[in-house]
Simulated scan of single mutants.
Amino acid sequence: MTSPARRHRDKVEARIAARNAAAVAPAADMTAPRPPRAGRPSLAARKAARAAGEAAAGGVGETAERLQGALAGLAAANDNGAAPDRQPSPETLERLKMAEAKRRLKALQSREAKVDLKRELLEGFDPWVTGLLAGIERAVAADRDYRAPADDVALNVLIWRIDVGDLAGALPLFELALRHDWALPPNFHRNLVVFVVEEAADVALAELEAGRGADIMSLMTIEALTGDRDMPDEVRAKMLKAMGREFARRAELPPAEDDPQPSAQRRARLEEAVGRLARALELDPACGVKTELARLRRTLAKEEDPPPRASEADAPPPVKSKPSQEPPPGDA
């Protein structure tokens, strides 16, 4: 019978023998390919995925095509050869285009150069905006209570349209944003209504300062859309100031040849100018319209004085009759 001490010694010797055998065994081949871990993509797949990310940094017009090519490489690199489970949606591709557009704008320092580039880039987003407006219109037609989620690309297009002075082009998106309660990105300090009203007024005032006319129809549409919206008095006064000055400018334009009542049209424009500038002065006494308002009021007063009737103004003065030289009857 083996004693406990002998059994313990046999175990120790077995451990020492196993350790020595491992020490003299040939080293494993570290250059052999390691099988991929479960759930981890292969190296080729990871490279293709990185190429897809780099494709997003290409030119705006080529981003979608380059991304699709990279995704094709990713599909080929998959172990089973199948396409990725999640293909990029059209929304993702448009966001990639917008991200690249912003990167190009950020590289510029000149404000004028940025405006020129925005004007060029906006054309590339027209198909997306047109499709978005049509899709939301169909959804609203099917369900009046439908509320479209905010679209970052559309909001940026709205902002850029105003930046380049295209107020008419911004209006459809502005109406859409108001109807569906969209908000500007968090980095904006003003809400959507205040931003659009103030920036549109600044665009109009800059056009007037440069001797050009403002887009009065777009300004009146914005005024109608935001008439019951809350905003600082100074912002509303700026919009009224821009509209009043445009009406005053139009009052001085030569009347159209086919205008049957040119004086009535001039008077109506003066009244619009005086009314809006007076309201602007009430909301913001420091808005800078006091002098021109007084001048326009004097001009309007002259226009309202009724001119003398043509029959009275053009009639020759009455001719005094000379006394008759004939003696009165009975004196002959």
Rank of each mutant, 00 (worst) to 15 (best):
G59Y: 11
A315N: 14
N191H: 05
L67E: 12
D151V: 10
N80Q: 08
P285D: 03
F174T: 05
L173I: 07
A38R: 04
W160H: 09
L132P: 00
F188V: 07
G53Y: 13
R34I: 13
E271Y: 05
T2D: 15
W128A: 10
P149K: 00
L155D: 01
D79L: 00
P306Q: 05
E252Q: 13
R104D: 12
P232Y: 06
D152I: 08
D143C: 01
D126Y: 06
E282D: 11
V60D: 00
S3N: 01
P185Y: 01
E209L: 06
G135D: 04
A248P: 11
A183F: 02
V157W: 08
E62W: 02
K47W: 04
R9M: 15
A150T: 09
P127H: 11
A75T: 01
D259W: 02
A48S: 10
R66L: 15
L208D: 10
S218C: 00
E271L: 10
D228F: 03
A210G: 06
R190N: 08
A183V: 03
A64E: 12
R111M: 11
P90D: 04
A17I: 11
Q109S: 13
P127Q: 02
A280M: 02
G211D: 02
A286P: 01
A83D: 03
G169T: 06
A200G: 08
L296T: 04
N20P: 04
L74R: 12
D85V: 07
A52Q: 11
A150Y: 06
E303T: 05
D233M: 11
R19L: 12
T2C: 03
K114E: 12
P255M: 07
E272K: 15
G275Y: 05
E209T: 12
R46H: 12
E100H: 12
L155V: 14
A22N: 09
E312C: 01
E209Q: 13
E252N: 10
A48Q: 13
A210M: 05
A21F: 12
K302T: 05
A237E: 07
P149W: 00
A27Y: 05
A64G: 10
F125I: 04
E292F: 04
M30W: 09
D314Y: 08
Q68W: 00
E209A: 06
R103P: 09
R298E: 15
P149R: 00
T92L: 14
P260S: 13
P84C: 03
R86M: 12
V60S: 05
G135E: 11
R179H: 04
E198T: 07
N156C: 05
E223I: 07
L300H: 10
A177W: 09
F188E: 11
D29K: 02
K290H: 12
E91C: 08
P255R: 01
K11Q: 12
N78T: 11
D79K: 08
G288Y: 12
D163A: 14
